[in-house]
Structures are given as C-alpha cells and as structure tokens.
Design a protein around this nucleic acid. Structure first.
Lengths: 218, 218
DNA sequence: TAGATTGTTAATCGATTAACAATC
DNA sequence: TAGATTGTTAATCGATTAACAATC
C-alpha cells in the first residue's frame, strides 16, 4: 500500500517540494497535450530548471525514470501526487468570508488538485447561515463540531490581520493540522501545526523590486 | 535624491528580496507597537531568521544600522521601501474580473503598501462598463489607452489558465513591465517583463506535503 | 547495436552562520 | 567606561551543476 520508494530518506529541502509541484503542473499540461513520456531536459526547460536538477530532485523520493526512455507522464504524476499527499481529497475550511474568503469559495483551481472547500466560517451575523457557491457559512463557534464531522484537517485563514492570531489559536485548538495563511503577519503556532504564508502585498513588492532594478541586470 | 547607498552593488539573491519584505512588514508592526529602534536579533527572531542573516541581507544595500544602538525603525522602513520601489504609489490594472479578480478589487491589503488598483479589464459584455468597489471595468480592447492614460506599469493577471498566455502577450505589447500571475501555468514573457507567480493550488500542496510528512520530522 | 537518458558521484557554486574588531 | 550591537571576514553548510557509468 505505502510504497516505501515514495518516502524520502532524509529531510527534503523546501525548495525541492516547491519544484515538485511545478513538475506536477507541467506534467499534467504535457499529458493534456497527449504526451506519454518526457525527459528531465524537456520537463525542466519551460520551468527554467536544468535537467540535472530535475533528476536530483526526483531521486530524493526514489527512482521514477527509465534510462534511455525518460519518465512516463502518467506514472510520474501519480507518484508526485502520492508524495505531496494529493492522491486523495482534502476537505478544507475557509475561515473569514470577506472579499478574499468569498473569492476562494468560488475558486475552481483547487478541485482538480484534490482540494474541496466544505465549510466556511465567519462571525458576522449577516453572513452566518447563508451559502456562498453552495458552501454553508457557519458561525466560528461551530468550528469544532463541523471540523470533526467533516474530517477537516486543513484551513484557509482569510480573516483581517487583527484577528488572525486569535483565530489561528482556535484552529490549533480544534485540531487543524495545516493553515494557508493570507493574513499579512507572522502567526505563531504550535509546532505540530504547519502553515504556508501567502502575503499578496509582499508578492507585489517582489515585482516592484524586479521592475525597479531591471535596468541593472541587462 | 537617489542615495547611491540604496543601490545594490552586485546582483541580489531572490531570497534576500523576499526577506526584505518580511523585515519591512515586521518593522511596521514594531513601529505600531511604539518601538523606535530595534536590533538584528530582535527583528529576525519572530521571523525565524538569525541576527547574522538580517545584517548580511541589509548590507547588500548599504549601511543602515548604528553599532551599539541597532536600527531606527522609521529610517529602516523608509530605506527598505526605497529599495523595493514602494516609496511611491504604483497604479495597478487587474485583468480578469472573475471571483479572484473581484476579490482583489476589494482587497485592502494593497493600499497601505503603495499599490492602488486603478482599472480592471474583462471581455464579458455583462461586466464591462460596471464598477466594482469603485473601480471601472473596461473591455480588454481598451487596455492600451487606459494603461497609457493612467501610467500603469504593473498588472495582476487573474484570467482563466486557457487565456493567460494570450493576455500576457497583450500586456507585454502595451508596455506593462511587471505581472503578478495567478493563472496556474508557466507563461513565457519577453525578458524585459518581470513576473511573480502565485499558484494557490501549489501553496496548498506545500501544506499537504508538510502535514503528511510531519511525523518523520519530529 | 547505436542513441538516448537515467541515477549518482564528485566538483562547483552560493548562501548561511560564527566570530570579532570597530563603533557608539 | 562598560555594554551593546553593528558591518564584515572567514568558516561552514547546503544546494546546484557537470560528468559519466549503467541501462534500456
């Protein structure tokens, strides 16, 4: 059942996991184009990654390729999904139904990757009880029973920055294991809880830096 | 006017720029708490960054600190903003007014960091001509005149994946210099155009990987 | 077989950390 | 002054790339 080849031997650098997702995305694209096999060179080229890097990254998790042939797209997709944990459906809770939260409830880019938003939470009476995109909005006080009933392990945190730490604490209490945090601040969490930060203003700043400093590069 | 100390000598690693944004965010928080000075140790601690790293990062751009004293928060905020290019207001165009685009039009996390969404674009007749959050939605064919009239240099790409490359080409044609890309694919761009990718499904995958592989870490 | 491409080792490169003289 | 903290150099660590025998 659990092919040991899919388990990493040592600790895996974060950068490698990020590239794994890129490989997965690219492989799914290649498959949609009708390709059955690909090579490390081909796979990396559009992503700006060298062939050696692609092979090295994959060997963290086992052997996936066929010398002289390359990689079978379908097989590699399955393997990477298993490594990332997206070979199953993850029910998700969205906490905070403001502009961003509402958009995420309607975002269709999650489904195909194994994520299903099952419940939303807010504290505003005007929102509680309504449905958005078919997803029920519960009061935050309902968090624990809903999370338990639905087997939700991951949450998207889309509340205002001022409320983020308190809500994060609550998520930790009810046993949530991973948080995708859109609030623009560092939240402190118990170490048995993982988080990934998405700070949109910071992403924009990376862009302005690149634009402002471009002249020097060329 | 342009203090040469704010210019990097050599090329700056991408990771350094990312941390610069984190320092900025943390410094603004510290200021909101009433602190006037801080130290490399203090600044890095909440971010999980060593004092040596903080100092090293900053010295890429000049000397900002006072031995024995630390860094003056206000001064360092101003300096980092100048480095990132956010010491001014950047007018932004949002292209694609679906769920995500609409949320971004109402997202208030941009304003305080120097970004102002000035115009939105779509091709759906039902949307064109309307206003969302006070921002006018133009037809995509109006891109060039609006971008020129408003001095827009940056765009947020929030169109479906299938349209992303074509719209990106259009953005390049009208002279946009930077793109924040929410479409889950690699777009190819002329090299005088920078882009930053935000793929939400990939962020979720980083989270599932962390959750699924946590046991091994401890 | 010849050609292609893997997995892996060794070499290179770059980034992080430790240490400390200089400074306030 | 003594204490604190910087900027910077040298040492360490880790990640990327190059090269190539093994394999299909």
């Amino acid at each position: 059942m659990n092919d040991p080849k899919d388990k990493a031997a040592g600790p895996v650098p974060k950068a490698v996991v990020g590239r794994l997702s890129l490989y997965l995305r690219e492989l799914e694209y290649l498959r949609s184009q009708g390709l059955e096999t690909t090579s490390s060179t081909h796979l990396g080229s559009r992503l700006g990654i060298t062939d050696a890097q692609v092979r090295k990254d994959l060997t963290h998790f086992g052997q996936f390729g066929y010398p002289g042939v390359g990689y079978r797209c379908r097989e590699l997709v399955d393997r990477i999904k298993r490594i990332l944990g997206t070979d199953r459906i993850w029910p998700i809770a969205v906490v905070g139904v403001g502009n961003l939260g509402r958009a995420l409830l309607g975002y269709h880019g999650f489904e195909s990757q194994g994520f299903r938003i099952e419940a939303a939470f807010d504290v505003e009476p005007a929102k509680v009880g309504k449905h958005v995109e078919g997803i029920p909005i519960h009061h935050l006080s309902e968090l624990e029973p809903v999370v338990r009933a639905r087997g939700i392990r991951l949450a998207i945190l889309a509340v205002p920055a001022t409320a983020a730490q308190a809500v994060a604490n609550l998520l930790a209490e009810v046993g949530i294991e991973g948080i995708l945090n859109f609030a623009p601040l560092t939240i402190t969490l118990p170490q048995n809880l993982s988080s990934v930060e998405v700070d949109l203003a910071i992403q924009m700043e990376q862009l302005t830096f690149a634009v402002v400093n471009r002249e020097q590069k060329s």
